[in-house]
Design a binder for these strands. Structure first.
Lengths: 193, 193
DNA sequence: AAGTGGTGAAACAGGTCTGTCTCATATCTA
DNA sequence: TAGATATGAGACAGACCTGTTTCACCACTT
């Protein structure tokens, strides 16, 4: 079985496309550009992905899995909900500082694929709702479910807003203010023990 | 002087382009589509705007002026900073509920034009920084300048995040939670009188 | 009456887009 | 050895993209 080299090509296309989509956007990045950068024949790409849209979905899902895995690891390092949430904000701080930060790929996808029925839109919704749910579950440890859901929504909004401000060159102050606001909100919502 | 009909055509192109950009995005909307929808000759468009990019900038600036005017009016209706900020959130609630809400055009522009040197990027930064500054000036009435700037940044993040969640079908809960969080933060930062 | 400026219609150029098709090649399995 | 599978290279189709050019028209001003 030659399944490893096959998957390698496939994965290589996904990662190359990710880099291009991130820098130039989805519509502005052509198939020809992707296969040239990945050094792969066009048919190789179309054999793995039936269309560009499905490649985009694959890129998004791939990044979503990676992101979830990283947050899983971070959550294991600390104990309290407040610390776990703080870790998530710290992760974003490091992300904003990384050399080729270009904003949130999922938010960008939402901008270019606004139809709620489009597979790309649904992939974005999956990722964002997943992050919200993750934070909600963390918070439920020390507040009622309904309250945890509202707080998780606010934290998600802070993160999304901070990411947008970071893309506009205000990364440091944005994530610092967002983190502080987040922890204040959690402290105020905490169930007394 | 026939300057009025000239301006009429120009403005009509801007408004038509706005509707299309909002629904389909910038790169996905072609010039041909715009002039067809606006029922205008291609040369008429290119006489008013040297390029598509400059048309995009004009559309963004036009919407930014409109938005600022509406907030100006709302601010006159009430007295305290808290009320003025609440009015801004209420405005967003109405926006999210409007029949053809498609998310924030400026955020979408940022997704498609990520180069900080690009005129479109700069137009987005102008609008977002303008909104932040507006809220900061409101807040300075009852808190120190540094604090007002941080709170304004947090409010902006809440608004941007709420807009993104609204586009994903969570308009009502998002704006409600964001508004409550915003007013709590302002109350906690208020300078004692 | 002559001129001026905005406009319309449509062809055109040169490029890019997604996706298909064909044919040759390399590698691994049975 | 024969066959299956993945790939490479590139031509190709048909549509769409931005922006330019040309010519005619119409309304208004002087």
């Amino acid at each position: 079985m030659t399944s490893s080299p096959a998957s390698d090509k496939r994965q290589h296309v996904v990662e190359t496309a990710y880099g291009l989509f991130k820098r130039a956007g989805f519509h502005a990045t052509g198939i020809d550009r992707i296969i040239a950068e990945a050094d792969v024949a066009k048919m190789t790409m179309y054999r793995h992905f039936p269309s560009k849209d499905e490649l985009i979905v694959e890129v998004l899902d791939y990044r979503a899995r990676r992101f979830a895995r990283q947050l899983d690891r971070l959550a294991e390092e600390v104990a309290t909900p407040g610390q776990k949430i703080a870790k998530i904000f710290d992760w974003h701080q490091r992300w904003f500082r990384s050399p080729d930060f270009h904003g949130c790929l999922f938010a960008h996808a939402l901008a270019e694929f606004g139809d709620p029925e489009h597979p790309v839109f649904k992939a974005v919704a999956r990722q964002k709702n997943g992050l919200k749910k993750r934070m909600q579950l963390i918070l439920e440890e020390e507040m009622p479910r309904g309250r945890a859901e509202s707080v998780a929504a606010v934290l998600l909004m802070l993160i999304e807003g901070a990411t947008l401000l970071a893309q506009m060159g205000q990364a440091d102050t944005a994530i610092r203010d967002a983190r502080k606001a987040a922890l204040d909100i959690i402290a105020a919502s905490r169930r007394p023990r």
